[in-house]
Simulated assay, not measured.
Amino acid sequence: MRNRFPATQKVTIADVAARAGVSKGTVSKVLGGGEYYVADETRERISAAVAELDFRPNAIARGLKRRRSQTIGVIVASIANPLYAELISGVEEALAGSEYTLIFGSSEGSAQKEMAVVRSMQQRQVDGIVMASVTLDDGEVEKQIEAGLNVVLASRNLARVVADAVVSDNHAGATAAVEHLAEHGHKRIGHISGPQDVVPFAQRRAAYDETLSRLSLETSDELCVIATATSLEAGADAAIRLLDSHNPPTAVFVGSDGLALGVLDACAKSGVRVPEDLAIVGFDNIWVGRMPGIGLSTVETDARRIGRRAAERLIERIDETFREGAWLHEPEVEVLPATLVARRTCGCPGD
């Protein structure tokens, strides 16, 4: 009888290597069918381990047969969002001087469209994809990776760590934003968040809640509004809902600069003075918020650096996959610092 792992536990190359008493690299070479010298006795041990564990290496074999295209795909949520323009610039920096070319697509917040973009890129035989938009559920992303697709997430991560990712420190950045508003003397601080099925927004919301509790500041359901999207229009709609509440806040932490620009627009149209009537801190530090006359206080996430690091990690993954037949490392989430940038909208001196 085969000594199988439990049905809920995925068998990996590492499991086969441990059972056969060899390295993961040796297993991938044997399963890949390349022209590598491996002793017959070692091959037999690996074959026995594969049979005992019921390991299915088909995805690896398929990956080895593909030709390298020297093309990388990037998927963003919206090309209209300045955040993604900076992230793509970072990817291009990482590819400068290399033989890689770049193609990109936009999901527009639709899981169906994102899947169509992924499939289109696969048809073009991209060597890997930087995904800055993840509307697909964790299981679908994991399925793509198991099928041999090289993926690194950028400015996004999943509830379960099934893919390499490069993100900003959402918790620290949101905490700094709320603490700063409290230092200005605000006791009733609101929050406008993006969709909670997007992990970074959920992390920023959690940090907001924790900080209010730690500082013994007022909390209530009416202080937090969840935007239906991440656009300027969605931010404006959320701001109107917040400002029309029975007891509106005197300050608001907004989960992204795109939403925060919508809040500024709603305030201007409603006659709400910023920061006198409502202090605002966003998140991302996009270039529009830095413009004179706007002076949006925000959290710097350095989207360009995120894009650059994500591309660098993807290239490392691609190189090892083509060299060894598989990516031999456990997925990791690289967290980059997020720092507060205080400007006019929170009441600090500046533009």
Rank of each mutant, 00 (worst) to 15 (best):
I129Q: 05
S168F: 03
T339C: 05
R304M: 12
T26K: 04
D302A: 14
N157Y: 13
R204I: 05
R156N: 04
A338P: 05
P248S: 00
R56F: 10
A18C: 04
R188I: 06
G97A: 04
K269G: 05
N3P: 00
R62H: 13
N58H: 14
A111N: 01
S98K: 11
G139E: 15
R43M: 10
S297G: 01
L153M: 09
D138V: 14
E86F: 12
A279T: 01
Q123R: 14
G289A: 08
P275V: 01
P248A: 03
G25E: 12
E276F: 01
P349K: 02
V225C: 09
Q70I: 04
Q123S: 14
R45L: 14
V30T: 13
K113L: 15
Q125F: 12
A7F: 09
G347Q: 04
Y208C: 08
E44I: 12
V198A: 04
A20V: 06
E44Y: 01
Y36S: 11
A154Q: 09
V166H: 10
D209Q: 15
P57T: 02
T339Q: 11
Q196T: 11
T301S: 12
I286Y: 05
A77H: 10
S120D: 08
E52Q: 15
F104H: 15
C267W: 03
A238G: 01
G33I: 11
T8P: 00
Y84L: 06
L223H: 13
V263F: 07
V76F: 03
R313I: 08
Y208H: 11
R68H: 12
V178W: 00
L64T: 13
V252N: 11
S155R: 00
V272W: 02
S28E: 10
V74D: 07
R45C: 07
L259K: 07
L336S: 07
Q70A: 10
A159R: 13
S106F: 03
M121F: 15
F253Q: 02
G258F: 03
E179S: 06
A159C: 04
T8H: 14
E300R: 13
R43V: 12
Q70T: 09
G325E: 08
V152Y: 07
C346D: 02
E114P: 06
V199T: 09
I103D: 06
E332N: 13
I103P: 07
A202H: 08
H329G: 10
A174M: 08
S78W: 05
K187S: 13
S120P: 02
P275E: 00
D209T: 15
V199K: 14
L136W: 09
T42S: 07
A236R: 11
N247P: 01
L217Q: 08
S231K: 03
D284M: 00
Y84M: 04
C346L: 06
T228M: 07
G235Y: 04
